[in-house]
Design a protein around this nucleic acid. Structure first.
Lengths: 149, 149
DNA sequence: TAAATAATTGAATATCATTCAATCCTATGA
DNA sequence: TCATAGGATTGAATGATATTCAATTATTTA
């Protein structure tokens, strides 16, 4: 048996999907060519960045979810985007935001379990420039990516 | 001119998309029927919850993003899910998590601007059961929904 | 080891996205 | 008011794709 599952998840997580124009045409009672035109326009304008699958992460080896608050050392203050971009590269990280207040960055992280998360914090998050880390562990997700769970 | 744009955004925000099997078949060098079978299986198992568009929220009237930390009154302590589910219904709310630590809930909220956000806090978030609200305003998003921006 | 169940796959079909050209609408300026 | 140009809408035709089906192969179960 091939292990296609993992490859599929990898591909569908960030793209490789497309809108169902014919279905939308029926729902909205509009000609599909009109919808096609308007969707392409949204894409051209950069309003639509892509199409992707939404997963129940518990079922694809991402049972642990946490929000991570970070403060940066004064030398990173001027350019928090450098570190933020570095974090963004990791597939375990769902979102990266530079924020106001007592913390500079907030990350949303998905790992298999708490052990995995601890390893991830040690290897990826704890780096020069990060002076303080606070983890808010998700006990229950009610909504994610605008989808109610 | 019809205003289809808003209706499309509404529909594509949470679903009405589908995987591009033929494209994946070329990428992964597997027969499209095999991929079709495996994708349907992921759907049946509930691992895939749906397919949706990813937006640049700044271009569809959601220029303001914030993470909202909430503490609940002792009487809501026992059943934070009730309030969480209520929040989840609002389209401005991207995610709702029940968390550990000093706060009980974290929301990710998208509104047009800060004024809109203030209205939203007053009308929706400030309700009986919520005793403390802390807003972390996003100044810059580097990644969202696993998509680098 | 046999039988049952699950997974893979090519061929055929049904559905759909996309293209194209014609038409309509809207904004702009004389 | 009218003419014009660019954008938006749409039906018909086409090309591409998802889906179904049946046959085969692999894996699990008893």
């Amino acid at each position: 048996m091939k292990d296609i599952r993992q490859k599929l998840v990898e591909q569908l997580r960030t793209g490789n999907c497309t809108p169902r124009i014919a279905l939308l045409a029926r729902k909205l009672k509009e000609p599909s060519t009109t919808l096609h035109y308007n969707i392409k326009k949204l894409e051209r304008e950069g309003a639509i960045l892509g199409y992707k699958a939404v997963f129940d992460h518990r079922k694809i080896g991402g049972g642990f979810t946490a929000f991570v608050l970070l403060t940066l050392s004064p030398d990173e203050y001027g350019d928090p985007e450098r570190l933020a971009n570095e974090f963004a590269k990791h597939p375990q990280i769902e979102s990266v935001d530079i924020i106001t207040g007592d913390w500079e960055l907030i990350l949303k992280v998905r790992t298999k379990d708490q052990d995995d998360y601890f390893e991830f914090v040690k290897k990826v998050i704890s780096k020069k420039g990060v002076t303080k880390i606070k983890t808010l562990t998700s006990l229950r997700q009610m909504k994610s990516e605008f989808v109610e769970l």
